[in-house]
Design a protein around this nucleic acid. Sequence first.
DNA 1: TCTAAAAAGTTGTATATGCAACTTGGTGAC
DNA 2: GTCACCAAGTTGCATATACAACTTTTTAGA
Lengths: 133, 133
Amino acid sequence: MTDIDRCIAGRMRMLSRVVTGLYNETFAEEGVTLAQATLLMYMFVVPGVRQSVLSKQLMIEKSAMSRDLQLLQRNGWLTDSIRKGLFLTDEGQALAKRCHKRWKALNGAVREQLGTDAVDGLDLLTERILALR
Amino acid sequence: MTDIDRCIAGRMRMLSRVVTGLYNETFAEEGVTLAQATLLMYMFVVPGVRQSVLSKQLMIEKSAMSRDLQLLQRNGWLTDSIRKGLFLTDEGQALAKRCHKRWKALNGAVREQLGTDAVDGLDLLTERILALR
DNA sequence: TCTAAAAAGTTGTATATGCAACTTGGTGAC
DNA sequence: GTCACCAAGTTGCATATACAACTTTTTAGA
């Protein structure tokens, strides 16, 4: 029973924790987490997007999404009508831009350090895992 | 700014959510989650292991680990002395065995469905991500 | 052996997440 | 039009996770 370190899910979760920590370090300078920054950046790109769309795209359960967005709203980054489509406030837009700048730099560096073969591996893995469902 | 779906961390988190859901379905029949089952199986294999070791191995922050274990203890699967090394109760051992059986079947099927190339990709990715730190 | 520093573990606080059950909103059949 | 249904969103409850600050335990030196 010494084979449990070959657990696909366990491995994915571990890697997720590690990279999350890495990205959070950067976003902390803007006072947000990676999860929050991701939502902000999505909403910047697709103004008016519905929760259900984000939920499906990111594979986050709708109730979790609802709460994540409420948090952003409490921080003044979303307008009031979050049930009719999501829109960033001016402050939210400015924050999204700053986050994107940091994200781009970090993500580029990470992709480079991982190497194209590892990144390709991730793409393949993504495809196959999504096909499991 | 439509490049955010190329986020390494975002991707890892999404995949983590998906596979976690898949594994949780199986473990739910034993009344535990994947996270809990993983800890039970580890402790079964290495009786007396310290929290700090699990924490490093699984890359889970020590305070999170502390609480995860307290939960298992409240359920009667761990003996009292969790500060001096972790030991499963008889019930905990029986549960760990049942979990391992389910895990082995599911993980084998998942590895097969993913294919060796994708699994190899995950191994490479693991290596590279751990090297980032 | 005693003590000071390091490591291990816990607790406060907060976010991220899921499932179940509920409410609200929209849409089509009639 | 309205009613019945389905999709979208929310809320209750629970787990998983991190950081900071604290307490306890261990370990190294003198």
